[in-house]
Design a protein around this nucleic acid. Sequence first.
DNA 1: TGGGTGACCATAG
DNA 2: ACTATGGCCACCC
Length: 113
Amino acid sequence: MEKTQGDFFLNVFAVVRLIPKGRVTNYGAIAKYLGAGRSSRMVGWAMNASHTQKKKVPAHRVVNRNGELTGKHHFPSPFMMQELLEKEGIKVENDKIIDFKKCFWDPMKELEV
DNA sequence: TGGGTGACCATAG
DNA sequence: ACTATGGCCACCC
C-alpha cells in the first residue's frame, strides 16, 4: 500500500518506530535486521526520507556505531536531537551517548527472541 | 540501463 | 590517535 518508496524505507521506519523510549540503536543493526548487510548507508538515507513521512519517526533514537549523534545535523535543529534524547532519559555529552551499551537496543535481539 | 550518491562500518597506514 | 580508502546496497536522475 502506498509504496511511495522502496519497502526498505518503510521497513526502516517501522523498526525505528519500534524503538522503545529511552533506547537507541545504530544503523548497522537495522541494516542487518533488514538483511541489507552492511548497507547501513541506506538506513541513514531512509531516515533522511523519514522527514517526508507523515508519521513521526524517532530518528533521534538512531545513532551511529560509536553512539555519536551523527544525524543531528540533519534535524530541523541540531540541538533538538540531543534534547529529545535527554528527555527520554539518555545522557548525551559532546554529541555522544553515555552508557551507549546500556541504552543500545538491538532489533534482532529484542524482536527476535 | 547505467552512474552517482549517502544521517555508515571496517580495515589499513 | 587520526586520516584515508574500500565495500555495501538501495534510491534517484
